[in-house]
Simulated assay, not measured.
Amino acid sequence: MDFKLQHTISQIKLILVLPCLSQAQRWSKRDQEVYESIKAQANKVVYTSQDYTRDCMFRRNRHLVDHSGTCICYLSKPQGGTAYTVDYAKKKGLKITNLAD
């Protein structure tokens, strides 16, 4: 996987905000290879937790909203982690673009 647009438009940066160092530990070998390839192309990688914890995904989502000006999401149901994060983004005043609409 190559992020060619990043090479064409210098203002585009690939910043990964990941929940923990061991996120891909139980994934298939192929998925881990793709994951590592994407990480290698990133301009910056941020981990919100060293280890998997019950709230590491929550902390990752909060970090994304707290460091963003726009929320682009695919929200298709009114409950769950995505719904909670989009609601948080609305409360923080972010512009919301829901690709499911």
Rank of each mutant, 00 (worst) to 15 (best):
M1N: 10
D2R: 10
D2H: 09
K4T: 07
L5K: 13
L5I: 04
Q6P: 02
H7Y: 04
T8F: 10
T8W: 10
T8H: 06
I9K: 07
I9H: 08
S10E: 04
S10G: 00
Q11C: 02
K13N: 12
L14H: 03
L18I: 11
L18S: 04
P19N: 06
Q23M: 11
Q23E: 13
A24H: 09
W27I: 00
K29R: 08
R30P: 04
Q32W: 06
V34Q: 04
Y35L: 07
Y35E: 06
Y35N: 14
S37R: 15
I38M: 05
I38L: 10
K39F: 04
K39S: 05
Q41S: 09
N43I: 00
N43A: 11
K44A: 12
K44D: 13
S49M: 08
S49P: 04
S49W: 03
D51V: 06
D51T: 10
Y52S: 14
T53S: 10
T53A: 04
R54D: 12
D55A: 13
D55Y: 07
C56N: 14
C56W: 09
M57L: 12
F58R: 14
R59K: 14
R60Q: 14
N61E: 02
R62K: 08
H63P: 08
V65F: 11
V65A: 07
S68P: 10
T70R: 05
T70C: 13
I72T: 03
I72A: 03
Y74K: 14
Y74L: 07
L75I: 01
S76Y: 12
K77P: 05
P78E: 08
G81M: 04
T82E: 02
T82G: 02
T82D: 07
T82V: 09
A83P: 11
T85D: 03
V86Y: 07
V86M: 03
Y88M: 00
Y88C: 00
A89R: 09
A89E: 05
K90T: 02
K92G: 02
L94K: 14
K95L: 10
T97G: 03
T97V: 15
N98K: 11
A100Y: 05
D101T: 12
